[in-house]
Design a binder for these strands. Structure first.
Lengths: 195, 195, 195, 195
DNA sequence: CATGAATGAGATTTCATTCAT
DNA sequence: AATGAATGAAATCTCATTCAT
């Protein structure tokens, strides 16, 4: 006898895996139900709709992500340390919520057009403020190069971090911390050998 | 099934825009037809199926991309210059085929599962050989750092380049060449100020 | 299936209200259960099916109605007094069984098509015999006008009486007896022979 | 090759018959499609939804009904003549739009709860103003009895007229005009003041 | 070349009903 | 008596595709 919230969580984890693997639109509720070992109609005892499933998957992940981000942003670190901490936090979230991140990466753009998913647009805005603001602060304080457009840098960094969810496999060769370290080393110092 | 090639090309451009904006699965043939100013059924005079549209969009783009890549790879350049040339070529292709690249980026993973799109898997393989091989050659020749896992570097670089298709707008602030230059500067030298 | 009769009666009253307000088909067992403060499945401890609920609602009402009608019809009254008594009895039933009457009015026609509800057709037949017969007797005896088609009169009277269940509210401005009086005053002074 | 508006009209006539016979909720789109000789999905080429079908059925009927009513109300007739004209007009509409009237009679109450069908509530209001207003004017002018509550009279008259749609069959024993005449004779000689 | 109308398969969703606890 | 979770059938609706004109 599984209590209700646990069952929901289990089912959402299953759904997130299928959404991540096949894409939201290509995923039928029947596939989710198959993966959960039940009939399609039975899912509707737990959820209002397929849409409410992806909604709950995304908002659960984003709540946790922003708890971590806010802790970083409130810590009063310098720009370089802030970027390091945000990247590390991001890869930790990818490790914990890989399917949700993959879904977010693939689907958030078109979902954001619907009123129900307006929070995606809001958070996207806060995301840009946090990252781009930190990069610009770093340029101003002389710790980041001034000859690069921070808007471009922001986009490169943002995309690379999240796209990692599409290839990252927990328990693989590198831990999330190690991936974050190498990624930061590349972005901050470059891959070229110093001459 | 004898349509003028120009009309096909026009329609494919329209279809690519819609696929890029909404995703392949979420795009109905009716939406494509609306965007083209015709009725859904009329598209079938020009194309066998919705699938054949995305097939033609992707293979047209990939043919041109690989023509460029092959020219670079056959030029006998050093690793750093090869990476520079591949990145520059990639951003040029994003400039010319933005919707196709966006579609490729979003849809190739699940399409590749179908036999019809087996060429996507083959090209993905060649892609990895070209990029990862060049990075590894660079490490061996001492022009790229040896303390980073080239497999990770490869994934970061690959993803960042293609994901750019999702935000790049032709005629925007930066030319594709300028974006490539800044991108290469970041990856090769880092965004941190040298001390 | 051994529920206390009081609980059954309570639940049937609740169900009748919901059926009357929303229609039988539009009423889900979940709505009834909500109104009764329980879960949908729990209703099946008390009743075999949704159909058996409406069956019991209708037959309980009709049993009582016909007890009243039979008393009137067996009293040996003249046609005018019989019509007066039937109308008065009908409005009394509407007062006591408003939701059941509303359900009867709305649903009996299509329910009657099913074998289980054959008794609706039988009673409809007895109903017509009682009312139409009395009207025709009244014409023959010269107390009702002969220039009106009694079949039309019958339908007008029948419908108006029962449709009243859809607007009547117990405890409203007029008592059922007063409504019956005004209704009879309108109808009888119209169809009655002038003296 | 039937032109589009004609096909819509045909299909709506079919749908109205089925709605009238079985009730809106009990009518599946498959039943409508069967009656129209097509597959259920094909209906969606012509209509957005089952709801939009009943919407169009009701509003088409109500538009025509109110065109007739407005002509009557604008004619400057006395109360008795106005009631006569409204009743006659109503029975004519029942003759022309019998299924739509039956649907209106059965379904308007619950449909009116939805915003989409708010116009039903508005028209119900105008309906009451027209009929009840005329009855009250008649009482004031001394052509209708003052000892009956006009609100009750209004309800009886209103219901009897529309309920007729549930038994009326075009081409039956009585023409709509004859039904109106007998109905008026019954009702008016009852509520009219004796001279 | 394109339209208008349909098909048919399959998607999401609803809901009466069952049943172990 | 009632709950919580499911079933399974059927409903509404979607959409790629076909085809006569």
């Amino acid at each position: 006898m599984t209590a209700s919230p646990e069952r929901r969580t289990e089912l959402l984890a299953t759904a997130a895996e299928v959404f991540a693997a096949q894409g939201y639109n290509a995923t039928t509720v029947r596939k989710i139900a198959d993966a959960a070992g039940m009939l399609a109609g039975s899912l509707y005892y737990h959820f209002d709709s397929k849409e409410s499933m992806i909604d709950e998957i995304l908002s659960t992940f984003l709540d946790e992500l922003w708890a971590g981000y806010d802790a970083v942003l409130d810590a009063g670190l310098g720009p370089r340390e802030t970027i390091e901490a945000l990247v590390t936090e991001s890869f930790k979230q990818i490790d914990r919520h890989r399917p949700a991140v993959a879904v977010y990466q693939k689907e958030s753009r078109h979902l954001a057009a619907q009123p129900r998913f307006g929070y995606l647009t809001d958070l996207q805005q806060r995301f840009e403020e946090a990252w781009l603001g930190t990069l610009e602060r770093g340029v101003k304080e002389g710790v980041f190069r001034a000859d690069l457009d921070p808007r471009l840098t922001y986009r490169f960094v943002r995309d690379t971090v999240w796209v990692a969810a599409s290839w990252y496999r927990p328990g693989g060769r590198h831990s999330p911390e190690e991936i974050a370290r190498q990624y930061l080393s590349m972005v901050l110092d470059g891959i070229g050998v110093r001459t």
